[in-house]
Design a protein around this nucleic acid. Structure first.
Lengths: 187, 187
DNA sequence: GCAAGATCGTTGACTTGTCAACAAACGGTC
DNA sequence: GACCGTTTGTTGACAAGTCAACGATCTTGC
């Protein structure tokens, strides 16, 4: 499932050639930070494509499926409300329904009714799912290292983390509480 | 066309709890650079989703379509071989065929047979397409500024550009020549 | 206690991408 | 100059996501 990516040179077009400029002249408005923006897009498109290919080839998992498994594995009790899972994987609710359908068909996950909310469903990791995840994570981490971590030193990584964090944080899904599963049954 | 994104916490699972660890303990292998990697993924998912929504709402263009228009506008003669366009927008050849179909239906682009290679087609920007692109680029650039550029200072941007460039460059499509259009007809 | 509204997960219809297969055209070799 | 392999763009069949609508359930105000 190679991501749709969208990529290289997303900038803009100059307002309008002021008559003197030949028709074939450049049209990019080269704003100061645009280079960084381009690198950002290009890097993401290329890396995720590679990682997805490798994961798919070696374990038959898409990056989204891997991510979902990881999210579940990481939650207490290895179970997460569909709801919450959708938000974490950044998918719509219907998207998560379908992704979990696939994982369930593959035996990596099971659905389980939520004890305290009859509407709710939880996705629960099966032992087989955990196995799959463990195996796949070797491949995945290897890729992340090779394409990303190994090319950057500690200072770079630090810079990236704070810069991109500053960019991503304010776009988060409003700092809601959003506990991850059904609260334990008793009052 | 909100990108599939794939996102937050893509790391890995610890090898196996060494017996003493309670079953509910953390499972993430927290490698040094993983924080940066997460920020990277999250930032990308959130920003592109916003930009795509805004572009779609204001001008009925997806980010991929916008990118394609921009690539064409940017090429000499405002025309590009399908071939090359696919590579630049990071889409398969069939993907580009379909995207150009849409743009053509919208009147933003026309197909034109390549003079020197009877197999070839070029996507040529129409005046209307250029107009659409210009209008849309205002929205788009505004968004890039608001979500990305404005949150970073010059040093951050510089760091991002070089770091991510170092990451993206080696994954490029092999430094092939790949001239963008049909060469002019005469020998 | 109950009606009105919000939320949850699923489904149908659709969009946008992929891959495999194709015909047409190119490019080199003999 | 005819053949053989490659490249080009399109197509059919499919994959994986979206949105809108739905029934079931929760929650809140009265």
């Amino acid at each position: 499932m190679p991501s749709p990516s969208v990529s290289p040179r997303i900038a803009a077009v100059a307002p309008e050639s002021p008559a003197a400029v030949p028709a074939s002249a450049a049209v990019i408005a080269d704003e100061p930070g645009i280079g960084a923006w381009r690198s950002f897009l290009t890097a993401h498109a290329r890396i995720t494509r590679r990682l997805d290919e490798e994961l798919q080839a070696a374990h038959g998992l898409s990056l989204a499926e891997y991510d979902a498994l990881l999210q579940i594995a990481h939650a207490p009790g290895r179970r997460v409300r569909m709801n919450v899972l959708a938000e974490r994987v950044i998918l719509s609710r219907s998207g998560i329904t379908r992704l979990v359908d696939r994982l369930e068909a593959a035996g990596a996950v099971e659905r389980s009714a939520c004890a305290t909310d009859a509407r709710g469903q939880e996705a629960v990791l099966t032992p087989l799912g955990l196995d799959r995840l463990r195996t796949a994570s070797a491949t995945h981490l290897e890729g992340v290292r090779r394409y990303f971590l190994d090319r950057l030193d500690a200072a770079d990584l630090d810079g990236l983390e704070t810069s991109l964090g500053r960019v991503a944080d304010p776009l988060g899904p409003g700092a809601r509480p959003s506990h991850e599963g059904c609260p334990p049954a008793e009052a």
